[in-house]
Structures are given as C-alpha cells and as structure tokens.
Design a binder for these strands. Structure first.
Length: 523
RNA sequence: GCGGGUGUAGCUCAGUGGUAGAGCGUCUCGUUGCCAACGAGAAGGCCGAGGGUUCAAGUCCCUUCACCCGCUCCA
C-alpha cells in the first residue's frame, strides 16, 4: 500500500466537494473567520455532539465509577449566548480581552498601551518630544534616554528627565510628538485602540451605549451563573457535573487554518463541581477519560497527545490544566488544541459571588463531625471545579483530517476512514443492476435500515452507474459499509457486504444486515 | 496588523491583449454487470468583486474581498 502525506488543500477540496464544509456567505465572496457545514458536515458534527452529550452527561464516562467509588452524575443545561454584561466583568473577559494596543506605523511593532512609558526633558512637556519605552525593559529605556539626550543635545542626569504613563498623554496635542520605542521619527504611534475580542451588540430597539451586551466568548460562564438554581431545583449533590453545548464567539485577530480558528464556533463544556479535597482526583479522572474518549471516536494513534501545562503556562487561578492536542496537517509536526481540561479551583463561583452578591456556596450534609444521632454536622464551602472544555468544530476537523486517507493503489484513492459512530452516512444499499427484481429488494432493505438507523445518519441508496463508482462515492463520503443486492440474493437471500477501509467483501444473510450494522455502529 | 502566494465550470487546473478551454465529477439515453467501465448526448462561467488603460482585458494598472503560507498577536 502506498500512501502520500495528507495535504490540507486536498482535505479542504474534499470537504467542499462532498458537502462537509462550505465557506460562509460564499456567493458574496465569503466572510473572514466563518464557515458553514454542508449536509454531511452538519450530520458529522451532530453525531460528535450527540456522542459527547451521551458520554459526558447522560451516561457519564460510559457508566464507570468516579474516584469516590460512585457512579458519575451529570445534568444538562442550555444557557443563552447573551448574558448580563456583568457576567463578563466577573469572569474577567471584559478586562482581559480589552487591552488597548498601540501600533507603530514606522516599525510595524505593536505595544500594549498600559506597558508603555514616556520620558521627556524636565519642563519641556509643553513643546518637547516624548520618547516611549516599555515598562521593565532596560533596552528600550536606554534607547529612549539616548534619543532624548541627542534631541536636547546634552547628557541627561538625575532630575533632568520626567517619566509619565502613556495613558496620561493628550492624544491630540502630544501624541504627534512621541517617538516610538523602536522608531526614529516622532508621530508614528497610533492612538490606543481597543482590541475587543468579544463581539458586542445592543439590546432594545432604541439601544444606546448603556444597553451594550456581549456575545459569549465561552459557554462555561452560563453554567456558573446558574449553578445555584441547578443545586436548588434538581436534588443534585456534590460531586456532580453540569454540561452545556453551544455557540461562542471570539473576534479573532487572525482567523486561520480552515475551521480551526473561527470567529463563531461551538463548544461542549462540562463543569464538574466537587469538594476541594477531592478536586485533584477528579481532575485526573476527567483528564484521562477525555483522552480515552477522543481515541474511542477515531483519533487513536500518535497524532493525539495529552499535554500537561507547565507551571508558568497556568492561569493565575488554575491548579492544573491539560490539553488534548491533535497533530493537524497545518500544525505538524506540532499540535493544535482540541480540548482543555482545567482545574479552575473555586475562582469562577467566587468571582460571581462577589460581583452578584448571591450566595454561591454549598452546604454539604455528608461532611463534618458526626452528630450523636449518627448524622453529620455538615460543611459549607465553595465547590472546586474541573472543566473539560472541547471545541466541537475542532473535533470535527480533527476527525476529518484523521479519516482522510489517500491510497493510490486503490481504484478510489481518496477516502474517509470515519469511525462508524460519527460517520454521517451509516450505510448504503445498492442493487448490483437496476433490474431483475434487485431494485425492489434494495428498496425494502433501505426502508428497514432507515427505520432502524436513520436517526444516526443517512442510509444511501443508489442504482445508477457502475458499482465501482458507487462504492468510490461512498468511500469519499466516509460511509463504512455498502450492501449490494446481486444475483445470488435472488437465490439464497444473502447480500454482499463491502467494507470501506479494506475494500473486502463478505456475504451475509439479508435478514442479518440489521444485526451486523447494529453491532458495527454501536446502535 | 505586516510580507509573500493564489482566486477561471461542482473539483483539479490550462489559457501569448483579439470568439471561454481540458480532465474528472453531475445529469439523460443505450450497453455491461462486484470496485471511479464503454458509447452517445446535455447542463453548468459576467474568469472573486469594483474601478481604470485600450478599438479590444481572464490577460496590463489601481482598489477591495476571500483563502493559503510565513511573521505578529492570542482567552
């Protein structure tokens, strides 16, 4: 078997050709950072989402016991894309995503405005030049002092210079007199510009600035905000998880790499709440299960890795974070993030408790001293949270990249080895020839398979053109099995079952097709 | 945001300032009957968009949009 390296161009061409992914608004020239799913892509992604929903919420971790020795319990939730603006202040997104940036037109450098400082000669603020440097950066400071000395034609000593913050500048009067940290000329810095990574809109028909709202940059915050309601209304007990899938929006500076970094994308997030003492165990439990899960739906192999973050990579509140990463053709030999499993401590609930003044702690009646009557005194605490947060679009893309195979020794060199569980086409039924009673049998079998498996994907049926061409078409669409009604079927009620990955054929009884397929699809 | 590259049929791509092309795919008819078969035919394009130069622009110039690659940035 001869194989050639996977080309992203070839994968993208197949995605378009077979209706997996289209460019959004393509007939208008497309729009940067947005992609639509065609019929097969939409079903592929739905199967991925359903698999996540099934294995993370309805039957978490395939029914296995958690580190506490009990069945893992999770409940679903569906929260709004638009939340109260204070949610994003509490989460840190409004502050963190809003660093004003300053560009230098001369050197093409970009600086964070709050990192810039200015030095100028004492008593010359009204007319003299300012020389910018970067906070805590000796090189640009030295350079700025040197340029200032040259400018005023004398050496600068103690007391001869004054330093001020960039934000203290009068942008109209004084900015034109500023020389950038790496620039030679004055006036090449732009005013600070907001790089707003959150999309915003306005509520109400006569909306003004006061009605500004944000499209969520992650689904997680909706869960934290409803944590108390779920606890109060559903009889869940710590430890338990809340799962949520849905669209999120980030105004990426550079959308890139097909659907990998899109401005509108879909997340599948679980927030698993537990006692602080058990949080490390649960963190390891979810980290390991998530890795196993991705393998189970077709990403097995050396293209998938689990990467534990280094200490200096961690957010200030995080005790531990791992990424499940996939080696995409465009990241190879490196990897791109599919999912992050973060130990978020009690950061989010604490933040929302402070900002909202709502009590978000939990009274745990299974803890504390044992009372004379045999019960427990109880313990009040803010739960810690483990967050497995997956990108469904990235997942779908990884599935497509992993499945894409080119084997020039096959009659149909390009095909998708999609795992049957996520494949958008579950099976195809072909009459070998479009006559002699075969179409009728094929139609009956198609109807049966539709009734049994149609909720998970398409059952294709096609009588046109040569059988080889029909197989090839199914190979490209990632359909795992084709059943062909032929002359023998008429005699002994058996059909040809053709396997996509190997191209091999076996005969099975017509009335056993459903059983066979049910086993293979896990349905 | 910067630099480089690419935009022509569903896909892959030719196309020298002078009538819009090929292969594959799609559809129809016929033949064949287990791996992109054969024959005949058909549909499908304002050459990414907008300006300009020219008697004449897919081709030259400008602008813009999208995608790819490399920087930069990145919760």
């Amino acid at each position: 078997m001869t194989t050639t390296p996977k080309s992203m161009d070839a994968i993208m061409a197949l995605c378009k050709r077979r209706g997996f992914v289209y460019q959004a608004s393509e007939i208008y020239g497309g729009i940067n950072g947005f992609w639509d799913y065609g019929p097969l892509g939409a079903q592929l992604k739905k199967n991925l989402r359903d698999a996540w929903w099934q294995d993370m919420i309805m039957n978490p971790a395939w029914g296995r016991k958690g580190p506490n020795g009990e069945r893992v319990r999770c409940v679903p939730l569906e929260t709004c894309i638009i939340q109260h603006p204070k949610v994003w202040a509490a989460s840190g997104h409004v502050g963190g995503f809003n660093d004003p940036m300053v560009d230098c037109r001369e050197t093409k450098m970009r600086y964070r405005a709050d990192h810039l400082r200015l030095v100028h000669a004492t008593n010359e603020r009204k007319s003299g030049r300012f020389f910018a440097f970067i906070e805590n950066d000796p090189d640009t400071l030295e350079s700025a002092l040197k340029k200032l000395g040259k400018y005023v034609r004398r050496d600068m000593g103690q007391g001869d210079t004054e330093i001020l913050e960039f934000s203290a500048l009068d942008m109209e009067e004084e900015l034109p007199r500023v020389v950038g940290p790496h620039a030679k000329e004055a006036g090449t810095l732009t005013p600070p510009r907001q790089f707003n990574l959150m999309f915003h809109s306005y509520t109400g028909a006569t909306a003004g600035e006061d009605d500004k709202v944000y499209l969520r940059p992650e689904t997680a915050q909706g869960i934290f905000v409803q944590f108390k309601n779920v606890v109060d209304t559903t009889r869940v007990k710590i430890p338990f998880g809340i799962g949520n899938t849905g669209r999120s929006f980030r105004n990426e500076v550079t959308p890139r790499n097909f659907t990998f970094r899109s401005r509108e994308f879909e997340q599948a997030e679980l927030e698993f709440f537990c006692h602080p003492d058990e949080s490390q165990d649960w963190y390891r439990f979810w980290r390991d299960f998530r890795m196993e899960w991705w393998k189970s739906i077709g990403l097995a192999g050396e293209n998938l890795i689990l990467r534990e973050h280094d200490k200096d990579e961690l957010s200030h509140y995080s005790v531990g974070t791992s990424d499940v990463e996939y080696r995409f053709p465009f990241t190879a030999p490196g990897f791109g993030e599919l999912e992050g499993i973060a130990h978020r401590g009690c950061f989010d609930l604490t933040q929302h408790q402070q900002h909202s003044n709502a009590k978000l702690d939990y009274f745990d009646t299974t803890r504390g001293e044992t009372l004379p009557n045999g019960g427990k005194k109880g313990e009040r605490y803010i739960p810690h949270c483990i967050e497995p947060a997956a990108g469904l679009d990235r997942g779908a893309l990884a599935l497509l990249c992993e499945a894409y195979t080119r084997d020039d020794s096959r009659p149909s060199p390009e095909f998708l080895k999609l795992n049957p569980r996520v494949a958008p086409i579950k099976a195809a039924v072909f009459p070998l020839v479009d006559k002699d009673g075969m179409p009728e049998i094929a139609e009956r079998l198609t109807d049966e398979l539709f009734a049994r498996f149609g909720r998970g994907g398409f059952i294709e049926s096609d009588a046109k053109q040569s059988i080889g061409k029909r197989y090839a078409r199914m190979d490209e669409a990632g359909c795992p099995f084709c059943f062909t009604i032929d002359g023998e079927t008429l005699k002994d009620q058996s059909v040809t079952c053709r396997d996509r990955d190997s191209g091999t054929q076996q005969r099975i009884a017509l009335d056993q097709v459903k059983v066979f397929l049910g086993e293979k699809l896990g349905m």
